[in-house]
């Protein structure tokens, strides 16, 4: 970000201690504000204003264009908490988070540990493991849509060759959430892998050499050196994965549209439907506020309990 060049008068420190010159004394502050201004502006337009507006709308009923028409106080909240559909959405979201975050992070950790070994040609695997980072949500969802296809999809074809029963990946309510989770884990692996690999490579090689001399085996080193040294990275990637999982939208929209029987109606998708299909901007805003509070609470809990286990250098 480019701050405007500030005309600087070269003053000695002594000259700054002039009690009468408030204008002079606040100079550092004003310069700082000037540098911060662009980010304040961007955040205000794209984050703070929409946030405020959402909270505001959650107290109103709106017309179909989204303009507030009737103040209803907390009734929108009462409505969503009584709604069966919202409760299902919350449950589906938590199931989804509980599947995708642990498995996604563990898979990325596993791949990163493999790719961190000093083997010939390991660079090839590093590239492969990280490569799906460059793929859009839409493109990868479409690929998975084909893989999950009931008759021509690769998974069912595979099952068929071993004469196993066919699975309705996206049509069976109990399978659909798992299928969406698998897709999500796959899509997030590249990023998590890259971050964790970076964390692994930051660990001083001498720590392992010393452990080798002292006779520590692979698992001992993993438990006593690698994981503790990696904990700041893991903490970061778990936080990011959690927040991402709560905000999943694209793959749901393409794979299942929230179905079947609302089993994959994750909360962001539910908000989208409420607002842009049912034109209920008030209840949709209330859901958004609830989502925001959920993420806030989870993140605070994580910082409170997780950070104790993190060893910063």
């Amino acid at each position: 970000m480019n701050g405007q060049p500030v005309p600087q008068k070269t003053t000695t420190p002594m000259a700054n201690v002039n009690p009468s010159g408030f204008w002079k004394r606040s100079k550092n502050f004003r310069v700082a504000m000037l540098y911060l201004f662009p980010s304040f502006l961007l955040f205000s337009v794209f984050v703070f204003y929409p946030m405020m507006k959402t909270v505001y709308l959650s107290f109103f009923l709106t017309d179909y264009e989204g303009f507030p028409s009737l103040f209803v106080g907390l009734e929108n909240y009462a409505y969503i908490f009584q709604s069966e559909s919202f409760r299902k959405s919350i449950i589906a979201t938590f199931i989804f988070v509980l599947i995708t975050v642990p498995f996604g992070v563990l898979l990325a950790l596993f791949l990163a540990l493999l790719a961190n070994e000093k083997l010939k040609g390991i660079g090839f695997f590093r590239t492969i493991f990280a490569s799906n980072m460059g793929m859009s949500v839409a493109a990868s969802s479409v690929i998975w849509l084909f893989l999950f296809h009931p008759s021509i999809g690769a998974f069912n074809q595979f099952l068929a060759t071993f004469h196993l029963p066919q699975v309705e990946w996206l049509l069976d309510p109990s399978w659909a959430i798992i299928s969406v989770s698998i897709t999500t884990i796959w899509m997030n692996t590249g990023f998590a892998f890259l971050i964790i690999l970076g964390g692994l490579q930051n660990i001083d090689e001498y720590l392992y050499e010393n452990a080798n001399i002292e006779g520590a085996g692979y698992w001992y080193q993993l438990k006593r050196i690698t994981l503790p040294m990696l904990s700041p990275t893991m903490f970061f990637i778990i936080t990011v994965s959690l927040i991402n999982a709560f905000q999943t939208f694209g793959q749901v929209d393409i794979l299942t549209q929230g179905g079947p029987a609302e089993s994959t109606n994750l909360i962001v998708y539910s908000i989208y439907r409420e607002a842009f299909i049912n034109y209920q901007f008030g209840p949709a805003s209330a859901q958004s506020v609830v989502l925001f509070l959920c993420i806030l609470v989870v993140t605070i809990l994580q910082f409170k309990f997780g950070e104790k286990k993190v060893h910063y250098q």
């Binding site: 720590l207 050499e209 010393n210 080798n212 001399i213 006779g215 250098q313």
Partner: peptide
């Protein structure tokens, strides 16, 4: 022999202490 089988100890230039 593996490093652990040589029955020796080593001090590294940067000490290689475990920060955690």
């Amino acid at each position: 022999l593996m490093p652990s089988e040589r029955n020796l100890s080593m001090v590294f230039q940067n000490y290689a202490l475990y920060p955690h």
